[in-house]
């Protein structure tokens, strides 16, 4: 289990990296934490003539909190984000999701941007980005673009990042007022990719009525799924059980050796209900 040969590049600026990607086209691939890419290279499931390592580019590894958002640089390690007070305060849903990723050794190297750019539908962070309406900044030959999360995830391992483009940072909007967040997932073992999971946020008014709701599902299709109908229903006064049933109603999850499609669909409703209950409880505190 050894990777095919490749040429290694360690650009020190985004411009240089973009130049390399442009020059080598489909033969080049970005390497961030390597926690998804390197296993695939080792298994020879994929290979590239050029690997463009982002780890030596200054400026992609910072977390900045402003009034409305937390901006996480693409190569911020998942472990660093997990420990960040700015993330804890400004993007608590992200903070809740991170410990579910693999094991601490994986998070020490894996990056926030890598997880989102990799767009595994069973991953936590893409669902968090989707639920929070994050915006993603990419830089490419034509300059910088901002992509909304709901236009970013196209299919399994496929995103709106274009040829020659690199994900630079992700802006997670902060929620104000009385709110609560939760991530619930069912995985075979601790650290496994989820069979089904939900990342949710709720905002309550003075009377503890749900006035804001965001639900991102993962592990239930070819992309993370936003449960808009369930969100509308919940803010319109539906029970969490009803909202959860709605969230699962339209999904069409895959079946595999770990769980049938029906199982995933059933359990999606369970994790949404449990996550909503936990988030509301937190918001009520």
């Amino acid at each position: 289990m050894k990777p095919r040969a490749f040429q290694y590049h360690a650009p020190e600026s985004v411009g240089e990296a973009v130049g390399l990607l442009e020059a080598h086209g489909d033969d080049a691939k970005v390497l961030a934490g390597g926690q998804s890419l390197v296993p695939m290279l080792n298994l020879r499931l994929t290979s590239f003539e050029h690997l463009v390592d982002l780890n030596r580019i200054a400026g992609l590894g910072t977390i900045e909190r402003s009034s409305g958002t937390v901006r996480v640089g693409a190569v911020v390690r998942q472990a660093a984000a997990e420990r960040s007070p700015d993330v804890a305060v400004g993007a608590p849903l992200l903070a809740r999701a991170l410990p579910h990723i693999g094991h601490f050794q994986i998070r020490n190297r894996g990056t926030v941007g890598g997880s989102i750019a990799h767009a595994d539908p069973a991953s936590e962070l893409p669902a968090v980005a989707l639920a929070l309406d994050a915006t993603l900044e990419v830089s490419g030959p034509a300059g910088v673009r901002i992509i909304a999360a709901d236009e970013f995830f196209l299919s399994t391992w496929e995103t709106a990042i274009g040829d020659g483009e690199i994900l630079i940072s992700v802006d997670f909007p902060s929620w104000g007022g009385r709110c609560g967040f939760a991530v619930e997932e069912i995985a075979r073992r601790h650290g496994d990719f989820a069979l089904a999971g939900a990342a949710v946020g709720v905002g309550l008014d003075e009377d503890l009525r749900v006035v804001r709701c965001a639900i991102g599902l993962f592990g239930v299709g070819s992309t993370p799924v936003r449960a808009h109908d369930a969100e509308v229903a919940l803010t319109g006064g539906a029970s969490i059980g009803e909202a959860a049933a709605l969230a699962a109603a339209d999904i069409d999850p895959p079946g595999d050796v770990h769980a049938t499609a029906m199982y995933r669909k059933e359990v999606a409703a369970v994790v949404v209900r449990r996550a909503l209950a936990a988030a509301i409880e937190e918001a009520c505190l």
């Binding site: 069912i186 075979r188 069979l195 770990h258 769980a259 049938t260 199982y263 059933e266 359990v267």
Partner: peptide, 11 residues
Amino acid sequence: LGPSQIRDLLR
């Protein structure tokens, strides 16, 4: 007796 199999039985 994984979770999916147990759900099949309960269902």
